[in-house]
Every structure is written in C-alpha cells, then in structure tokens.
Amino acid sequence: MKFSIRGGYPLEGVLTYDESEYGFSFSAQSGDSLSGRLGSEGVASVLVGTLQLEVDIESREVLFAWGYFPNVRGVVAELSAPQFIPGRVFISSDHSFEPGVSFEVPGDRWRVSYNPSSRWVAIRLNDSTDAKFVQIASGTVLGIDNGDLVSVWLSPVFVE
C-alpha cells in the first residue's frame, strides 16, 4: 500500500471527537463538496489501529478520518503541529477495495500523543524527519514518507 500526494484543496468540514463515544466523526461543510469527490463504486477504509481513513474506491482518494479511537488523551506530550500543505492523498495497492471493507495500514507500533494546549492528537509510526505533511480535510493532516503513511495528525473539536 503506497500513498501519493497530489495538489488540490482539503475537504472542508468539521472533525469532532465525542468523548462519551470515544470516537472521531467528520461532517463535510456541504454535501456537494463531498459528493464531488465520491465515485460510483462506494467507499472503503484503511485502518490505523481503530481509526479509519475513508477512501473513495473509484479514485482511491483518502477523504477524512473517523471511527472509534479510545484513550486519545492518554499520553500528554508537547507537540508542535507539523508544517503542512493543502492537498490530496491517493492510495495505490494490489488490494481490491470493496464497499465497507477495511484494510490495515502496515505498521504495528503506532504511538498516540496529545497536546492539551494546542489540542492536536498525533498518531505516529515513527518520527520521520523527511515526511511531507498534507492537510486532506479540515482537522486532518497525513504524514507521508517515501510512499508510506507514517503519521496522522488530528485537530478535532472535543465534545462531551
């Protein structure tokens, strides 16, 4: 599974973390902006632990983050959000994507950190210094290093 960066604009909306349900959700700013990125084949997900990155099957574009993800504030750390560019990220893979089916992103040592002052959540495989960071949706930044997804940075609105 390889990730590639292309130019474009992030999907506008609101990323929320509901503490009572231990989960992220994304609400697009408009149905038109989301439907403009969806093909006719449906959506699938790639998984980082239990976090899901929604993927349009036809284009293989990563759209936004969502899903059950407990203990978001478990490890408090000083985090500086990475310098990121707006853009779009696409997946190339030998897997055939099917509606509603998820595939796990390679890597088994994802670390979660949270900065209470900036409210950023970082889910990192490693501290890659050569990664390029792309904001694919409001509140969602992906770190890509040599075609590999190495981090997901989330800046949600927290609700109880």
Rank of each mutant, 00 (worst) to 15 (best):
M1T: 08
M1R: 12
F3E: 03
S4E: 10
I5S: 03
I5R: 03
G7N: 10
G7R: 08
G8L: 10
G8W: 03
G8V: 08
Y9D: 02
P10E: 00
P10D: 00
L11V: 00
L11N: 00
E12P: 15
G13P: 15
G13K: 06
V14N: 13
Y17E: 05
Y17H: 11
D18V: 07
E19G: 07
S20K: 14
E21V: 04
Y22K: 08
G23N: 10
F24R: 04
F24I: 04
F26G: 09
S27W: 04
Q29V: 07
S30W: 03
G31A: 06
D32N: 07
G36P: 00
L38G: 04
G39K: 00
E41Y: 06
G42Y: 08
A44K: 01
S45E: 08
V46P: 15
G49N: 11
E54A: 06
E54G: 01
D56P: 01
I57W: 00
S59Y: 02
R60I: 13
E61V: 09
E61Q: 11
V62R: 05
L63H: 11
L63P: 15
L63N: 05
L63Q: 06
A65D: 10
W66T: 13
W66F: 13
G67A: 04
G67L: 09
P70T: 01
N71L: 09
N71I: 03
V72E: 04
R73P: 04
V75T: 15
V75H: 07
A77N: 05
A77M: 14
E78Q: 08
L79K: 02
S80F: 08
A81L: 01
Q83S: 15
F84E: 15
I85W: 02
I85Q: 14
P86W: 09
P86V: 09
R88N: 06
F90G: 06
F90S: 05
I91F: 13
S92V: 02
S92K: 01
D94I: 13
S96W: 06
S96D: 15
F97D: 08
G100I: 01
S102C: 09
F103V: 05
E104L: 03
P106A: 07
G107Y: 10
G107F: 04
D108N: 09
W110G: 05
S113V: 10
S113K: 10
P116G: 05
S117K: 12
S117T: 13
S118I: 12
S118P: 13
S118A: 13
R119M: 12
V121W: 07
A122N: 10
I123F: 14
R124H: 08
L125Q: 02
N126K: 14
S128L: 10
S128Y: 12
T129P: 12
T129G: 15
D130Q: 12
I136Q: 02
S138T: 12
V141W: 12
V141Y: 08
V141P: 05
G143V: 01
I144N: 00
I144E: 02
D145A: 15
N146D: 06
G147Q: 04
D148C: 07
V152K: 02
L154G: 04
L154N: 11
L154M: 09
V157K: 15
V157A: 11
F158I: 03
V159E: 02
E160V: 09
E160S: 14
